[in-house]
């Protein structure tokens, strides 16, 4: 437990002190939100219709693009090797680092995003459903991003590859995330069912991703 807290605390402090932390992710998110109406035109009713989707896509990209900081520095400076020598299995190390990534990217974005939704003329009744669905869904997004980062950690130009590998895996989270975000609009049953399935998918990811990440990191350290 002490190892767990120590690692979580260190990663949070590092994310806070170094660039590429919360601020950058929010800035990126904002940029995508601004580009969206510029791309499709300022029609208020059209914007209202695409607002949830736009917010989710901005969330996917922001979480993904901050993924490379999860393991890269630890891999480069030798910390990852020392991290394998504690009592904590590498899989748990991967889970803790994914968790801290969520705390510094997905979670703050999930809180801020629906508010920025007003820029897209978002239906006010959707603010809280979106917030809830994004909080839950972004956990899975962070863990998958972390898996992608682990699988490419030893590669010099892993950035584009991470997107190619991870974005297809984001499909289920996005589909059920958006369904769950729809609130009562497509029927209360639909959104609560979607929320349930989203929880299930998140659980599967929580199990699979750390194992995959741990195995990949071990392979790169060989």
């Amino acid at each position: 437990m002490k190892s767990f807290m120590a690692l979580l605390k260190r990663d949070l402090v590092l994310a806070w002190r170094q660039g590429g932390g919360v601020g950058t992710a929010v800035g990126f998110f904002l940029t995508v939100i601004v580009l969206l109406p510029l791309g499709i035109g300022p029609d208020q009713s059209l914007l209202q219709r695409i607002a949830p989707g736009g917010l989710w896509i901005a969330l996917l990209l922001s979480v993904l693009l901050s993924a490379d900081r999860i393991y890269q520095a630890d891999y480069d400076d030798g910390s990852l090797e020392v991290l394998t020598m504690g009592a904590m299995p590498l899989e748990i190390v991967a889970a803790v680092k994914s968790l801290s990534h969520w705390l510094t990217s997905g979670l703050p974005l999930a809180i801020i995003a629906p508010l920025l939704g007003f820029l897209l003329n978002l239906d006010t009744s959707l603010v809280f459903p979106i917030m809830g669905a994004m909080m839950l869904g972004s956990i899975g997004l962070s863990f998958l991003a972390s898996l992608g980062a682990a699988v490419t950690v030893g590669l010099r130009r892993g950035g584009l590859l991470v997107s190619l590998l991870v974005l297809p895996l984001y499909v289920p989270v996005m589909i059920f995330g958006i369904s769950a975000s729809s609130g009562g609009l497509s029927g209360p049953d639909v959104s609560s069912a979607a929320m349930g399935i989203l929880s299930g998918i998140t659980l599967v990811i929580l199990v699979v991703a750390p194992f995959g990440s741990g195995a990949a990191l071990r392979t790169y350290m060989r």
């Binding site: 898996l147 297809p168 979607a194 995959g212 195995a215």
Partner: peptide
């Protein structure tokens, strides 16, 4: 070989979920 195998297996676990979610969508 190792990394590619991890990628293939993660994909195999996700394929049914992706299929299911696309059908739902």
């Amino acid at each position: 070989a190792r990394i590619a195998a991890i990628v293939a297996l993660v994909g195999a676990i996700n394929l049914p979920i992706i299929k299911f979610s696309v059908d739902w969508w």
